[in-house]
Amino acid sequence: MDIKAYIETGVIESYVLGMADAQEAAELLQMARKYPEVQQAIDAFEASLEQQALASAVAPHAHVKDSLFTILAPEFKKEDHKTRLVAFGWSRYVAAASVILLVASAALNVYFYSQFKSTSTAYQALLIEKNSLIADNQQMQTKALDLYNNMQMMTDPSMIKVSMQGVPGKENSLATVFWDSKSKDVYLLPNKLPQAAVGKQYQLWAIVDGKPVDAGVMDACTGLCKMKNIPAAAAFAITLEKKGGSPTPTIDQMYVLGKVG
């Protein structure tokens, strides 16, 4: 059989262009399997047809692809996503890096926050300590000032000092009255007196014309306790009385006694 002549009959072009009938097509495929030249001629025409079509390509409307992919969306393989992920590899790394940065940043935030918390707590503690130190200091200053004032008073030349010794049975007790000879103010210094029992209070008496006159009860005070103003007195004494004091002294509860002058 003349293969060259067969190739030139146009049956190949007719087949490739889809115009050959079933019998012609079957015959051609048989020939192609038998003769490589026939197959080569088929391949060559197919290739040039494809080249020609590609060269005269017309851009389709953009919406065609969109709607096509919308229609076929349910039919695409799921893992196809993977291919795209590989294609967008760089963005995957960026995403991974972002996540790492986020986690690192969050960890740093937690760290800094805990640091801030402990520093803040320490600061608060220091603040409280400072305030209490200031308060203590003020108290000490007040006390020092009181003591200074007391000392000034005690050393004043017009101040009469009356030392009161313990009465028989209370020999260990001692108290001192400072009596301003000008203003007649009386100050008491409890040098050595037992702790008053609950509901009891020490009371100072001025002995005027042989009679006891109430000179006030002794409250808790630093240094000198200011008592009542006594214009004149021959002696002073202290008794332990019920809280708030008594109108007359309980003699058997006398602790100290001292004469003026």
Partner: peptide
């Protein structure tokens, strides 16, 4: 998608 991008124009012609 690749097939479409490469052949849609030729087929449309």
């Amino acid at each position: 998608s690749y097939l479409y991008d490469n052949y849609a124009g030729a087929l449309l012609s």
